[in-house]
């Protein structure tokens, strides 16, 4: 869920850039460490970024018939961790604004914070909490991706509410209204995205479980339990 170009006043656009930049710097530091340990990670990260871009430009099946796109950030957070995901997301968000006019350049900082930092971090926390438990692999992915999506939308609402506080009730009142308006599309979207990405993982587990083993996303026993014939 992107904040479009021109929507945030200059001071708020600058503030969210100031929040996003330290996260990106730490993400680049993590990326360098990952690449120095494993040079093969660069092309794999690159194709995952390309996949996230395409995933986010596909229209999800929607009950209401409205136009909804998955974010795919939960998937990247599970596979590569939240900090590297912030760098991948920043690049994908830049491409989305320049290739599809989704988002913007002045609002890129705010979008990085919501879609590239808070959302993936929340999804990753859920994934780490459930990874080594008895919770099944598809359910873990569903919860991680759905929570990442929901938190993205909550943070976007907060960013808009801070920029445009209500005359009565201030930021809280404005936040409630933005949450309510976007809930119509974003809550079903988060659920559908969670289901779709859980099915995607199930599909990968049955056809190419080596990918998940290589990424050390789940213990081999859990992948086997989900139906993956790991060699």
């Amino acid at each position: 869920m992107h904040i479009m170009e021109g929507f945030l006043p200059l001071e708020w656009a600058a503030f969210w850039w100031a929040v996003a930049i330290p996260c990106l710097v730490f993400g680049i530091y993590q990326l360098r460490r990952t690449l120095s340990a494993d040079r093969e990670a660069l092309p794999l990260l690159g194709v995952t970024g390309g996949f996230i871009f395409i995933l986010s430009s596909l229209k999800l099946p929607s009950v209401t018939g409205s136009c909804s796109h998955p974010t795919g950030t939960g998937l990247s957070a599970v596979c590569f961790g939240p900090f590297v995901t912030s760098v991948v997301c920043a690049i994908v968000l830049l491409f989305q604004s320049l290739f599809l006019a989704h988002g913007g350049l002045s609002t890129l900082g705010a979008n990085i914070v919501s879609m590239g930092v808070v959302g993936p971090f929340a999804g990753w926390v859920v994934y780490r909490a459930l990874r080594d438990t008895r919770v099944s692999l598809p359910l873990t992915i569903f919860l991680s991706c759905a929570i990442a999506d929901l938190l993205t939308y909550v943070v976007t609402s907060l960013e808009l509410a801070l920029a445009y506080p209500a005359g009565v009730g201030g930021v809280v009142s404005s936040f409630v209204l933005f949450l309510g308006i976007f809930a119509i599309t974003q809550v079903p979207l988060a659920i559908v995205e969670g289901i779709v990405l859980a099915l995607v993982f199930k599909y990968i587990v049955s056809l190419k479980p080596e990918i998940l083993v290589r990424l050390r996303v789940f213990p081999e026993e859990k992948i086997r339990a989900a139906g993956g014939g790991v060699q």
Binding site: L31, L42, G46, L94
Partner: peptide, 12 residues
């Protein structure tokens, strides 16, 4: 690293 990653994403 960021430019290289961006170029691979672009190609992909």
């Amino acid at each position: 690293e960021v430019i290289d990653l961006a170029m691979i994403i672009y190609r992909t």
